[in-house]
Simulated scan of single mutants.
Amino acid sequence: MAPNITPDPDKARMLRGPMLLRTDGAKKSTYDQRLLELGSDHDWLHADPWRILRIQGEFVSGFDALASMPKAVTVFGSARIPEGHPWYQQGCDLGKALVAADYAVITGGGPGLMEAPNRGAHESDGLSVGLGIELPHEQHLNKWVDLGLNFRYFFARKTMFLKYSQAFICLPGGFGTLDELFEVLCMVQTGKVTNYPIVLLGTEFWGGLIDWIRERLAAEGLISPQDMDLFLVTDSVEEAVQHIVDAHGVMTDERLANATQVDEYTPVHEVLEQADRR
């Protein structure tokens, strides 16, 4: 039998908002009092409970702004490649080709190989979307973005890429691009998202990594042999876009099915007007 223990009478229970606490003294102040008092400190702006609301706000803003998105392809790539580089021109060509195939183009919204696909899409009168991130060296969305959002948190931004894209193309890039590539590969491999097509554009750039994946991960049983089929490696913009079009022709995602019933690409101004009304 459990011992008969009487609660310490000096430690009364007290409600503090939704919490029931045992305490040894009276409350110094109430939530209302601390909210309404003048001269309160603002450390709460940096506390975890307030961060949760900021995170929630980023998701709400993203879902709200992108709710009317047509079918779209996200393009990842380096921020460090300047205009005039062959990879930059390839990015512009890719943006134009995606618009010609009736896709909106989503990027990370920054310079370099994010700017290039946005530019190609914008110059072709397609929908050019940029999802930026707050970084010490990247603080702006490029000028070719028609619909843009800037995020504090990487994970909120990544959710928007996954939720509003039906394919992913990786141009050459650094750690950020590799992070995004492997995030998408992992989500597709584990069945967390629909088996969306993934393309790596640039056989010379990506070749060493693909060899390592094949010779180490696949050969040692760390991934399945069929996982090598989760992506296409090519130098051809046309082949990359056609691979996506062909894959979407047999996929069951409702957004793709609905898109095939529409005769014309959703005009950019309509998407932007719907986003503005929200």
Rank of each mutant, 00 (worst) to 15 (best):
residue 35 L to K: 14
residue 36 L to K: 14
residue 38 L to Y: 09
residue 39 G to N: 06
residue 40 S to N: 12
residue 41 D to P: 08
residue 44 W to H: 10
residue 46 H to N: 12
residue 46 H to K: 14
residue 48 D to T: 05
residue 49 P to R: 06
residue 49 P to G: 03
residue 49 P to H: 04
residue 50 W to F: 10
residue 51 R to P: 01
residue 52 I to P: 01
residue 54 R to L: 07
residue 54 R to Q: 12
residue 54 R to H: 11
residue 55 I to G: 03
residue 55 I to V: 11
residue 55 I to D: 07
residue 57 G to S: 04
residue 59 F to H: 08
residue 60 V to F: 15
residue 61 S to M: 11
residue 62 G to F: 09
residue 63 F to V: 12
residue 64 D to R: 15
residue 64 D to M: 15
residue 65 A to M: 12
residue 66 L to F: 15
residue 66 L to I: 07
residue 67 A to H: 12
residue 67 A to T: 09
residue 67 A to L: 10
residue 68 S to A: 15
residue 68 S to D: 15
residue 70 P to L: 09
residue 72 A to Q: 07
residue 73 V to Q: 04
residue 75 V to S: 02
residue 75 V to H: 05
residue 75 V to G: 04
residue 76 F to D: 01
residue 77 G to N: 07
residue 79 A to C: 11
residue 81 I to Y: 13
residue 81 I to N: 11
residue 81 I to E: 14
residue 82 P to D: 14
residue 83 E to S: 14
residue 85 H to V: 01
residue 85 H to W: 11
residue 86 P to S: 03
residue 86 P to W: 06
residue 88 Y to A: 05
residue 91 G to P: 02
residue 91 G to K: 05
residue 92 C to L: 08
residue 92 C to F: 07
residue 92 C to G: 04
residue 93 D to P: 07
residue 94 L to W: 09
residue 94 L to Y: 08
residue 94 L to G: 00
residue 95 G to V: 00
residue 97 A to G: 00
residue 98 L to Y: 02
residue 99 V to G: 00
residue 99 V to F: 04
residue 99 V to P: 00
residue 101 A to N: 01
residue 101 A to F: 02
residue 104 A to K: 03
residue 104 A to M: 01
residue 105 V to G: 02
residue 106 I to Y: 04
residue 107 T to S: 05
residue 110 G to R: 08
residue 110 G to E: 09
residue 110 G to P: 01
residue 111 P to K: 12
residue 114 M to D: 05
residue 114 M to A: 10
residue 116 A to F: 09
residue 116 A to Q: 02
residue 120 G to Y: 03
residue 120 G to Q: 01
residue 120 G to C: 00
residue 121 A to H: 04
residue 124 S to I: 01
residue 126 G to S: 03
residue 126 G to V: 03
residue 129 V to A: 06
residue 130 G to L: 06
residue 131 L to K: 10
residue 135 L to C: 14
residue 137 H to F: 15
residue 138 E to Q: 15
residue 138 E to M: 15
residue 139 Q to M: 11
residue 139 Q to E: 14
residue 139 Q to W: 10
residue 139 Q to D: 14
residue 140 H to Q: 13
residue 141 L to E: 09
residue 141 L to P: 04
residue 143 K to Y: 08
residue 143 K to W: 07
residue 144 W to Q: 13
residue 145 V to F: 12
residue 147 L to I: 12
residue 147 L to T: 11
residue 149 L to E: 03
residue 150 N to T: 13
residue 151 F to P: 00
residue 151 F to A: 06
residue 153 Y to T: 08
residue 153 Y to N: 11
residue 154 F to Q: 06
residue 157 R to Q: 09
residue 157 R to T: 09
residue 158 K to E: 02
residue 159 T to W: 14
residue 160 M to R: 07
residue 160 M to I: 06
residue 161 F to V: 01
residue 162 L to E: 06
residue 162 L to G: 05
residue 163 K to G: 02
residue 164 Y to V: 02
residue 164 Y to F: 13
residue 165 S to I: 06
residue 166 Q to V: 08
residue 166 Q to T: 07
residue 167 A to I: 01
residue 168 F to I: 00
residue 168 F to L: 01
residue 172 P to R: 03
residue 173 G to M: 09
residue 173 G to N: 04
